[in-house]
């Protein structure tokens, strides 16, 4: 019974890792589509979102099955709850990838302006945060997760700076108002992306701490 449960948890983790990889790929494609003005790639991202959604449903179901059948308590319950939380975060990150891809087409004609802003810098940092938070989950590395939390401030500051510089730009370049509005919205999406990466990192730290408790509790205490 014990080993079966452990195997179920391993399967669950495997699903989360696969979903994470898928979502990371979506983000990469979405950003490429946006900054390279590649509308075909943007459409691929939008189409692939249903795969992300399928994983979300699958993982929710698996968590529920494990909860119903294994009825875990204490540390194992904590692991399961964190898995549910990470699943949600990944699904939302997937949605943000779609949001980014959707802005590729309207900005195709404004690439020069787009690339002159700090948006791509922000996108890179946010993407690295997502990747690091996923890596920290795969390897159970709390220190990497902590570093993700620190990056969140950088993204918030970039978001603020971008807002101010775009408003100033809009006032002198009226022909860029619409493009600037799109870029402002994208900035918000990236800021939320960083937030989700931070949430995953926090969940990982929670899980690692739970495992430490489990490890320290020792074998003899288990019923």
């Amino acid at each position: 019974m014990e080993r079966h449960f452990e195997r179920e948890l391993e399967d669950l983790k495997g699903n989360l890792v696969t979903m994470g990889s898928l979502v990371d790929g979506q983000l990469g494609s979405a950003c490429r589509a946006l900054f390279e003005g590649d509308t075909a790639r943007a459409r691929e991202v939008m189409d692939r979102d249903r795969e992300v959604d399928s994983f979300d449903t699958l993982i929710d179901r698996k968590c529920m099955d494990i909860l119903a059948l294994a009825q875990p308590v204490a540390v194992d319950l904590r692991l399961l709850m964190s898995s549910l939380a990470i699943n949600s975060q990944l699904e939302r990150i997937g949605d943000i990838a779609v949001n980014i891809a959707e802005r590729a087409e309207p900005l195709v004609a404004h690439r020069e302006f787009l690339l002159s802003t700090r948006l791509s810098e922000m996108a890179n940092i946010a993407r690295i945060m997502v990747r690091d938070s996923l890596d920290s989950f795969i390897h159970g590395e709390a220190s990497l997760a902590s570093r993700v939390l620190v990056s969140d401030d950088v993204v918030d500051r970039l978001d603020g700076g971008l807002f101010r510089s775009l408003v100033a730009e809009m006032k002198v370049r009226h022909d860029r108002i619409e493009a600037a509005a799109h870029i402002l919205i994208l900035s918000r999406h990236l800021e939320r992306l960083a937030d989700h990466a931070t949430n995953i990192a926090e969940d990982v730290i929670f899980i690692v701490e739970a495992k430490l408790v489990k490890h320290n509790a020792g074998e003899g205490i288990r019923p």
Partner: peptide
């Protein structure tokens, strides 16, 4: 919610309800 899950160990409809409550909370 965690307490309910750990102590009551609900199944079926109750479990769905509790997990829905978790998401709605969020």
């Amino acid at each position: 919610i965690v307490d309910l899950l750990a102590l009551q160990q609900p199944v079926a409809t109750d479990l769905r309800f509790i997990l829905a409550a978790l998401k709605i909370n969020n």
